[in-house]
């Protein structure tokens, strides 16, 4: 047996209409509510006639539930509004990504770098402990992020307002489009510069850095440690390989998997060598006519220690270069057959 109406159904209806009215603009409120009320009454009446009795609570609830949440019902009468419309939204999203990648992410990386390598900065910011330092940085980062993204959003909201009125985005010239870019194409000018730079470097390297005594003057003499000979030959070999690869790129200016892999290998080797050099106490001695022996030793140790401290930066740079090189290999592998069909003709 169905439950009979225990509350006044009119009261529930009034509450529903009042809730819808709350979200409607004043000018249209009365009109819309009158029509909605009339429609609901018609529906209730029809159902009551069919059942031959008044509706119970559950049946009333079902009718109103079917109509929808008051806010959503009112929302359908309102014009579609947005702070940034669909025309500018993709550009807005692009700018937000740029702000995140080139401002907010570097902010975090700089903070990590300062906390890791600057003892004075670390001492200044960890007085309340590490958690305090992280909490304070997090707060500052959020403030920075909110300000940056808020500013971008505000600028785009204003632009959207003007775009809606003036339609300035519709006025454009196809001739001003940038040239079609092939990410696998290697600019010939770049390859030429690479060949020349590597050859000049090789000549200078052989001329100046082939011996352990890299400076030998009456006033100062700088001698490298015996381990230097490994670095000498390795860097020379890398420079020559790079010159050969650059020459090949000059002739066939498209990255192939083979050449991109070779570049990854040479860059990884160079990074590993640099990392090793930072830690290898590569400076053996500095002597000078006017430098006391103890002072010279102090300077030598300070330079070796300074190089060792740069190790994390060299390592991080090497990782970034390796990632860029790896991405280049993936790009060369996934050449779109139609868009870059000229690449296939250029592949070695």
């Amino acid at each position: 047996m169905s439950k009979t109406t225990s509350r006044d159904p009119k009261d529930l209806l009034d509450r529903y209409l009042q809730a819808v009215a709350f979200w409607l603009p004043k000018a249209q409120q009365q009109d819309i509510i009158a029509e909605l009320s009339e429609d609901l009454h018609s529906q209730i009446e029809e159902k009551e006639t069919a059942l031959g009795r008044s509706l119970n609570d559950a049946e009333m609830d079902a009718i109103l539930k079917h109509r929808g949440r008051p806010f959503l019902v009112a929302n359908r009468y309102l014009p579609q509004r947005s702070l940034i419309g669909p025309v500018l939204f993709p550009i807005y999203l692009f700018v937000v990504k740029i702000v995140a990648a080139f401002y907010l992410l570097p902010w975090i990386l700089v903070w990590i770098g300062l906390m890791s390598f600057s003892s004075s900065y670390r001492a200044e910011h960890t007085s309340a402990g590490w958690f305090g330092a992280i909490g304070s940085a997090w707060g500052a980062w959020w403030y920075t992020a909110l300000f940056a993204l808020g500013t971008v959003t505000l600028v785009f909201a204003v632009l959207d307002h003007f775009q809606t009125k003036s339609r300035f985005l519709e006025d454009w010239n196809p001739r001003q489009l940038p040239p079609a870019r092939n990410p696998n194409r290697i600019p010939r000018a770049g390859s030429l510069i690479e060949v020349v730079v590597n050859l000049i470097f090789s000549i200078w390297w052989i001329d100046v850095m082939s011996t352990r005594v890299i400076l030998n003057r009456p006033e100062i003499r700088i001698v490298l440690s015996p381990v230097w000979r490994y670095f000498f030959w390795a860097f020379l070999l890398l420079a020559l390989i790079n010159a050969v690869v650059a020459a090949a790129n000059l002739a066939r200016p498209y990255w192939t998997v083979v050449r991109a892999s070779l570049r990854l290998a040479t860059d990884c080797t160079a990074s590993a060598l640099f990392c090793w050099m930072m830690k290898a106490s590569v400076l053996a001695e500095i002597t000078g006519a006017n430098i006391p022996a103890a002072r010279a030793l102090e300077i030598t140790n300070a330079i070796n220690l300074g190089l060792a401290k740069v190790f994390p930066v060299v390592l991080a740079t090497g990782v970034v270069i390796a990632l860029v090189d790896a991405r280049r290999i993936l790009r060369a592998k996934n050449v779109a057959p139609v868009q870059f069909k000229e690449v296939s003709a250029a592949v070695v």
């Binding site: 249209q28 819309i32 029509e35 909605l36 429609d39 109509r67 929808g68 959503l72 019902v73 359908r76 009468y77």
Partner: peptide, 10 residues
């Protein structure tokens, strides 16, 4: 449904 019809009429 009513939520579509009435706003459409308006």
């Amino acid at each position: 449904d009513e939520g579509t019809l009435y706003p459409l009429l308006r």
